[in-house]
Write a protein that binds this DNA or RNA. Sequence first.
DNA 1: ATGAAAGCGCTAACAG
DNA 2: CTGTTAGCGCTTTCAT
Lengths: 346, 346
Amino acid sequence: MAVRRQPTLRDVAAAAGVAVSTASRALTRPGRVNADTADRVVAVAKELGYIPSASARALLSGRTATVALVLPDVTNPFFFGLVRGTGARLRESGYVQVLADTEESAEVELDTLRKLRGQVDGAVLAASRLSDEQIAAAAADLALVVVNRTIPGTPGVLLDTAGGMVQALEHLAVSGHTRVAYASGPVTSWSDRRRREALEPAAARLGVELVVLGPYAPVRASGAQVADAAIDAGVTAVIAFNDLLAFGVLERLDARDVAVPERMSVIGCDDIFGADLVRPALTTVESPVEQAGRMAADLLLARLEGGRSGDEEGDGFDEPVDARDAADPVMLPTRLIVRSSTGAAG
Amino acid sequence: MAVRRQPTLRDVAAAAGVAVSTASRALTRPGRVNADTADRVVAVAKELGYIPSASARALLSGRTATVALVLPDVTNPFFFGLVRGTGARLRESGYVQVLADTEESAEVELDTLRKLRGQVDGAVLAASRLSDEQIAAAAADLALVVVNRTIPGTPGVLLDTAGGMVQALEHLAVSGHTRVAYASGPVTSWSDRRRREALEPAAARLGVELVVLGPYAPVRASGAQVADAAIDAGVTAVIAFNDLLAFGVLERLDARDVAVPERMSVIGCDDIFGADLVRPALTTVESPVEQAGRMAADLLLARLEGGRSGDEEGDGFDEPVDARDAADPVMLPTRLIVRSSTGAAG
DNA sequence: ATGAAAGCGCTAACAG
DNA sequence: CTGTTAGCGCTTTCAT
C-alpha cells in the first residue's frame, strides 16, 4: 500500500531535458519527433514507470477507451458468452470493458446509465429492463447497442430463439407428440412474445395442439408449478422459457415419479452450464451468444471509431438521421441440441 | 445515437446567472451558498440535464470513486458470490464497481493492473495468477486487497477451504472409509497447498489412509483421469479440488458403471451452481464467498476513506509502515454440505 | 524538430 | 455569500 505519487509527463520531460509537448509527441507520435529524442524520452518514461493519466486524456479528448456491458445479472449463465464476446472484441480494439450489474432493476439500470455517461464511450445493453422510450432517451446521451431488443434508431443484435423453439416443436412433432405445452416467461419479455407468435402458426402447420402455460418467473423454483400445470393439461411434452425453468421442471417430475422422457419430454432454452449435467440431460436451444457479443461490440465500435457526429455548437436544429441508424438489427440463428430429456410421445 | 454535447458547469452557471465556482458550490456543498441561489442552480442543472464530468473531477481530486474487481474468469461460478458481495458493499459507499476478466493469464492480469492504475481508486484481486512479488509491486502503485492469498503488507481475506476439506474427511471417516483420495488442483494454487497440509495430519489423526492424486486442471474434463486414478488406487472415496472436477468424476464413474455412493463416494468444493442438480447430488464444501467479497470491499474502503497516505514531495526516505498493513488477513470458516454423493464405505 | 502557451471541466484557494 | 484566479495532466495549435 502506501501508494506513491505517480510520475507525470512533466517529470518525464524534465528528466529527459525536453519540453512537455515534445515528451507528449515522443510518446504518442514517435514519427513527428527526432528519433534520438524520442528514444531518450521513451527510455526515461519507462525508467520512471510513467503511465499516462487516463482522466487527463479523457478530459481533453472526451474519449475514455472504455465500454460498459450492462446486464441485469452478471451471474446469469446465459450472459457468459456475451461477456466473452464483447470483451474479446473490445480488447482487440484496445478498449477496456467494464461490467455493470443492474440487479434486475430498471431503476438501478437507469442510474447506472446516468453515471456511466462520461465515464465510458458507449455501452452494450443486454436484456434491458427499461421501456423502449427510456432506452431511446438514454441513447441520445450515450452511444448504445442493444441485445435482444428492437429500438428504432438504435443498433441491435437479436438471437432468434423463437426459431429454435420452432425447431423444438418440429422435433417433438416428428417424435409423435400431438399435445405440447409452452411454459412462457415474463410478460415484459420481448423474446417471449416473439416465441409465442412463432410457435402458434408452427403448431397449426405441424398438426400439434399448443397449450400456453404461465407466465412464470424464469427461475428454477417456478419449475414445480410448470410441471404440475403440464401434467394437468395432459400434454406429453413441455417447452420451457429457459433452462433454469426446465431444471425445475425436471426436479418436480422426478419428485412426482413422472418418467422423463417416457411420460413427459422436456425442452429448455439457452444451453446454460449444467444442461448436460442434469439427468436426464436436457434437450435445449443453443444460441450463438458469444458471436452476438462480438457483433454488438462491432456495431458499437463502428459508431465510436467511424462517423464521429461532430455537432459542436448545435444551434437547435435536429441532426439529420444517420442512415445506419435505421438499419435492421442483425438476427442470429439458433439451433436445437437434442439430449435425453426428449423422446417419443408416451 | 447522434450523441449531443453535454452541458458543462459553465453552461449551468451562465444559465443561472452565477459564476462557475458558485454553481460548483451550490451543487456539491449546498450549505455554503445562499439557499435561493442554490435552489436556482440546482433547478437549472436538472433542466439542462447537467451531469458532472467524472474525468474532470478525477483529474483534480485524483479519485475516481471506482473500484475494480479483478478475476481470472468472470464466468466461473465460484466468483459469483464475490461479485455480489463486493458490488453491494461498494455501491453502499457510492463507488462504482467494474469487473476485469484476466482470462486466467498472468500477463493479461499485469497489463490490466497497469491500465487500471489511475482509472480506479483500488482493486480487489481474487485468485491472482501473479507471484507474491508481482502483487507486492503492484500494491505499491494501487490500493489492493487480495482474496485467498497472503501477501505481506497487503490486506486480504481468506476462505478456509482447508478446514472444510478436513470436515469432509471426518465425514468420510465416520462413514467407515479408511482409504480416501484427494484429487489436487494446480501446483500454483495456494489453497491447494494449504489443503494438503491440513488433510495429511487430519488423516493420520482419523486413521485414514490419504492418497494424493494429481495435480489436475480444475475443470470438468479432468474428472475422467481422476476417476480412473481413484479406482486404480483402490479408494472408496474421492475429495476433489473443486466441484467442476467432481462433476467430471461423477460423469466418468457413471460411464464406467461405478455406483455412487455405493462403491465410491465423491466430494467437491465450492458448492457452485449445479452441485445440487447433478445425480447423485454432490456433497461439497460451501464457502461464505459473498461475505468474503463484502469484507474485501470493507478492507479496501478503509484504506481509501481512512488513512490517506499524503506523501507529497517524497524525499527518498521510506514511509513508516502503516500498522494495519501488517495485520493478519481475515480467515472465514467454511462448512460441509452433505448430499447423496457420499455414503457408507463400500 | 522543438518550445511556449492555451485550454479540456472542475474545485480550491483567495479576495471581495 | 460570491466572483476571480489558478491549476490538476495532458494534447494541440502556433510560433520559432
